[in-house]
């Protein structure tokens, strides 16, 4: 079977890293590629060696102590949170539940006895019901996320084969409803876990990417729906990012007794030098991208971004995980 160069390179890197062979042994296996492989293997070796850097012992010790103390704080919190719930916290809930049970029993008795009040009770219950419904149900969100994922996979698979079948297009309508519901749920973030928001963000990002890709493979009558769906997903992502992004740093609150790490480690202080230009080195990294060979089969960035920030955002959305 013919194999691509980057796969051969990775195989050689793997065996070199495992110590199971030398560069020469690896090159002997691929004599036709030796001239191209050899310099890259040497560079990779040097990279590996250069990165074998350890944190300074002072910092490592201080960081470990802070981590252990954060762990202790959490343990303490868990222990104190469980048994000692103050009366005023559980009493209203208990009283509310008791009242509901009493009311239900009373209503049942009246209904069985055929009393004329049952209709009135039904009216009262109907009035109460909507206010007692919780805003977004998490399992519902996960169900929708999973359904969208499955449908996206199907559409993608179909599009890879050729024009998308009309049956698959029907998914788009369902997907639109699910997506709109997910986006609506982001309007009430207090009812959501950050993990749910991350999941929504991830699926919306995936949706945008897949639907943009398959646009040319769907029948013309579906394009409008598809565009609308992409727009909804975009709106949803903006909302999700707003919820996700200003993430509070847990370190200071979790380690109240510890000094800030920058001051705790002597190695950190002498590193800041004013002569470094903050942007000079960042700019070339972005301008290098267009030089990438366009002949590669697998694109490096599936959705190239015009600005560094946008590119970063795309990277984040693809891999975001729930923040603690």
């Amino acid at each position: 079977m013919k194999r691509r160069f980057e796969e051969v390179l990775e195989e050689c890197l793997a065996v070199l890293a495992s110590g199971q062979s030398t560069v020469e042994e690896c090159l002997a296996l691929y004599p036709g590629l030796a001239a191209e492989l050899e310099p890259l293997l040497h560079t990779a070796r040097n990279l590996q060696r250069a990165y074998e850097v350890d944190p300074s012992p002072l910092y490592a010790q201080a960081a470990r102590e802070r981590f252990l103390s954060a762990m202790a704080v959490r343990r303490q919190r868990r222990l104190t949170a469980r048994p000692a719930r103050p009366f005023w916290r559980w009493a209203p809930a208990a009283l509310g539940s008791a009242a509901l049970v009493t009311f239900a029993v009373w209503a049942g008795v009246l209904a069985v006895s055929g009393g004329g009040g049952s209709q009135e009770i039904a009216v009262v219950v109907n009035k109460i019901e909507p206010t007692s419904t919780p805003a977004p149900v998490v399992s519902d969100i996960q169900g929708k996320v999973e359904r969208i994922k499955t449908q996206l996979k199907e559409i993608q698979t179909e599009a890879e084969k050729g024009p998308v079948e009309p049956a698959v297009i029907q998914h788009i309508q369902q997907m639109k409803e699910d997506t709109a519901a997910l986006v609506d749920s982001l309007d009430q973030p207090e009812g959501l876990e950050l993990e749910d928001v991350s999941q929504i963000d991830e699926v919306l990002a995936n949706q945008e990417e897949v639907l943009n890709k398959v646009k040319e493979s769907v029948p013309p009558e579906a394009v409008e729906d598809l565009d609308e769906l992409i727009k909804i997903a975009g709106v949803g992502r903006a909302k999700a990012q707003q919820i996700l992004l200003p993430t509070p740093t847990a370190v200071p609150s979790a380690t109240p007794t510890a000094a800030p790490s920058a001051t705790a480690t002597p190695s950190a202080t002498p590193t800041v030098t004013p002569e470094e230009s903050p942007t000079a080195t960042a700019t070339p990294s972005e301008t290098v991208t267009p030089e990438e060979s366009p002949t590669e089969e697998i694109p490096e960035e599936p959705t190239p971004s015009p600005t560094p920030e946008a590119g970063e955002e795309a990277g984040l959305s693809a891999t975001v995980v729930p923040y603690p």
Binding site: V53, D54, P55, P57, S267, T271, E276, A280, S285
Partner: peptide, 15 residues
Amino acid sequence: ARGRVSPLSPSLPVG
């Protein structure tokens, strides 16, 4: 801080 750089600490152990 994207692209903000400063030299590595001289006390950083490099194995």
